[in-house]
């Protein structure tokens, strides 16, 4: 079996712009994950002083320094920051709400400038993985996706990251025009394997009507990051093409009115075969992070604990063995 490691995405605790802001709330999440058996956490990029784990300057201010943050994690029993997710098309106040697209070459220089502070932060945190959203939603791009342009900017970010000891994994989510097997293959075929990996997001693949096990087998040599999460639904009506799909589809504003697409493992309606995905990774040389994610959870601690139970008892016999056994460094 290869030596991949488990982590947990913190984004599920960020349920609203005013939640998960105070340091004691961070600490409770870290301790919940640690005692559940997770030794690493994934950060996500954000904006504003309330997204204080999502902006490098605010993280440093709150914890004194990047080292201060790592030290606080260690005191809670978390050994590492596995990864950070970043959406180049998400406007940030700190960047003047700049609207950018990976498919527009004219935006690429600004995208490269915007990622720079995050790469600095990852270096300081000892984190070797940045997960970059490959495209904005299909409904916003329309029919004009230039895969070559997307590939080009991902390679340039990947190169800048590599210079700092960080690898880039392209996140192709369930709203992306590249979300199906052909789209994923086209992006991977257009990018240099030395610079761009694939982030395998199991739930997004299911929503897109794809089999995550088959995609994992097909691209196992390109996988550089995994988001392991479940979904109960397939977007069989192509709602991802709606202009406002982030709201109309993912928040249940229109169509089938599904308000929650993503789930922790273990529910009867779950469509992702986590054991099979982990089996494919285990048979390969994959040695990166497997990051459990449960965004859209109404009860973040519950989702983390149920995922831990599921890994321990159903999907990954090695999960507990890999978990922390020693005391946190207080």
């Amino acid at each position: 079996m290869s030596g991949f490691r488990y982590s947990y995405a913190l984004n599920q605790w960020r349920q609203s712009p005013t939640s998960f802001v105070r340091l004691e709330d961070h600490e409770r999440a870290f301790k919940t994950l640690s005692v559940s058996g997770f030794r690493a956490v994934e950060l996500w990029a954000g904006t504003g002083r309330w997204s204080n784990l999502g902006r490098p300057e605010h993280l440093r201010l709150n914890y004194g320094s990047s080292a201060g943050f790592v030290g606080r994690l260690a005191e809670c029993g978390i050994d590492a920051v596995s990864s950070l997710t970043w959406d180049p098309s998400a406007p940030a106040a700190e960047e003047g709400f700049d609207l950018r697209s990976t498919s527009r070459p004219a935006d690429h220089a600004r995208i490269l400038a915007a990622v720079d502070p995050y790469l600095d932060l990852l270096t300081e945190l000892g984190c070797d993985r940045i997960v970059v959203r490959a495209t904005e939603p299909a409904g916003r791009i329309g029919a004009d996706l230039d895969v070559g342009a997307v590939a080009s900017v991902l390679e340039r970010i990947g190169s800048a990251a590599k210079d700092r000891g960080v690898r880039l994994a392209a996140d192709i989510d369930c709203l992306s025009p590249l979300r199906d097997a052909a789209g994923i293959a086209s992006l991977l075929d257009s990018t240099d394997p030395d610079l761009v990996d694939l982030s395998l997001s199991t739930a997004d693949l299911v929503v897109a009507g794809e089999d995550p096990v088959a995609i994992a087998r097909r691209h196992v040599d390109r996988i550089g990051h995994v988001h392991l999460k479940d979904s109960h639904f397939v977007d069989s009506e192509n709602a991802y093409l709606l202009p406002g799909a982030e709201v109309d589809m993912l928040q249940g504003n229109a169509g089938r009115r599904i308000e929650r697409w993503f789930f922790e493992f273990g529910s009867e309606a779950g469509l992702v075969d986590a054991a099979a995905v982990l089996g494919v990774l285990g048979e390969s040389d994959y040695s990166g992070w497997v990051v459990l994610e449960s965004d859209q959870s109404p009860e973040p601690a519950t989702s983390a604990m149920l995922n831990a139970w599921y890994l321990t008892h159903i999907a990954a016999a090695g999960f507990r063995a890999a978990a922390r056994t020693e005391e946190p460094a207080r």
């Binding site: 609203s16 939640s19 928040q251 504003n253 009115r257 308000e259 929650r260």
Partner: peptide
């Protein structure tokens, strides 16, 4: 409250 956690009123028409 909602099935995906606390939401504000701008989430959906409903």
């Amino acid at each position: 409250p909602s099935p995906n956690g606390p939401i504000d009123q701008w989430q959906t028409y409903d």
